[in-house]
Design a protein around this nucleic acid. Sequence first.
DNA 1: GGGGATTCTCAGGAAACTCACAGACAGGAT
DNA 2: ATCCTGTCTGTGAGTTTCCTGAGAATCCCC
Lengths: 230, 230
Amino acid sequence: MSDSSSPLVLVVDDEENIRFLVETGLGLAGFDTVGASDGRQALAAVAEHRPQLIVLDAMMPELDGFDVLRRLRDGGDKTPVIFLTARDSTEDRVKGLTEGADDYMVKPFAVAELVARVELRLKQSGVARQQTLLTCADLEMDTDAHRVTRAGDTVELSPTEYKLLEVLISNAGRVLTRTQLLDHVWEYDFDGDSSIVDTYISYLRKKVDSVDPKLIHTIRGVGFCLRHDA
Amino acid sequence: MSDSSSPLVLVVDDEENIRFLVETGLGLAGFDTVGASDGRQALAAVAEHRPQLIVLDAMMPELDGFDVLRRLRDGGDKTPVIFLTARDSTEDRVKGLTEGADDYMVKPFAVAELVARVELRLKQSGVARQQTLLTCADLEMDTDAHRVTRAGDTVELSPTEYKLLEVLISNAGRVLTRTQLLDHVWEYDFDGDSSIVDTYISYLRKKVDSVDPKLIHTIRGVGFCLRHDA
DNA sequence: GGGGATTCTCAGGAAACTCACAGACAGGAT
DNA sequence: ATCCTGTCTGTGAGTTTCCTGAGAATCCCC
């Protein structure tokens, strides 16, 4: 999972599939990632790779997230940390924040949301001048203002519609399968069926793709793709 | 936390999350910031970056805020300093002020208030002609006169309403989450529910947004945004 | 100490959103 | 042309989020 000059994010979680989802999601968003499956590996990875940010699961056997964070801070390391915590317990929050974590997400979360937080946090610490305006033809997404316009007209989108469009536009020109979209836009433990993606693609078409040129394309038998055909 | 030509503020606090909150708050207000987590780093940062102002925590291990200030003044450095002191102890107050601090804030404070003091102090020292009139459409905030008008009519706001509107208008066009607003407008140790933000948004709507065009927008699932839609 | 302004909690109703389902529709193969 | 498979979209039930009014607690000025 490496590119060349994008910010590097360390992802620490003992659950293989969650780590995979998160790393894939960050990869699609243009980040380099390194993974670690326990606390000890995490500390070693920080020392070796000097990541710009750490996504850290709170619950891990042996050295848990809190221990890792404490050791980092005690050693003078100030790398921003986003915690992944099991449920919305106020206790976790206080504990995490007072120990110097900068943000936290409650499991299960939508990967697209975690990616947004990572981007925000990196922007705040000035590491990555994040691109705030995503475009495809006359479709524009301003992620700062959380605003979408098509041919200059503002379009109102629901949260899910917005996240879906964001994933599509950040991967403009690439075909994304229903499963990929489901994995990134919906909470990862979503157990409904992937036809919900069709429903939301339909909503998006009505709201942002009712004028020419059509930007949302169906790739029969594969998935969907946002692109501007010349 | 750097941009290019805004005034630079050095933030010194050994508590990571407080430093982060303060730096973020100053960043949102358009300042560049540099952080330091102890007295020695602070002195080094002053020498290296020559900040326009220093936000200095009084209580730190080893070299505390008073020591830092004394060393600076003894060395002829006149950079304005705003002290952060643990509680409203008369002793701290006297000690800080007589030794050359220009202002002080008692922890826990509201970040928006600290930002206001920083702006005031910089304006006094003529370093930065800080913008004193904030506007959005026909809504105006004169931070000098502490006065708000909508369509020419003066509006009376309570302190909290004022701070909230100030944060919104200085970030006009950008979406702010309930958490961000809570972190900047309310004292940072506020442990109530973030629905208080909704209540105050409602108050503001009644007082300053009862006429068209509507400027305060709800971004469902995200937060609020002040902007003038054409 | 009294009274008004302010802060904050809470809860009901309104509005928006999510998601399943099912029938209509389209593309490709035979 | 016809069938089959995959895709599109309208409907509606259930859920979540938001808005606002009412009231308790607190602060502050007189």
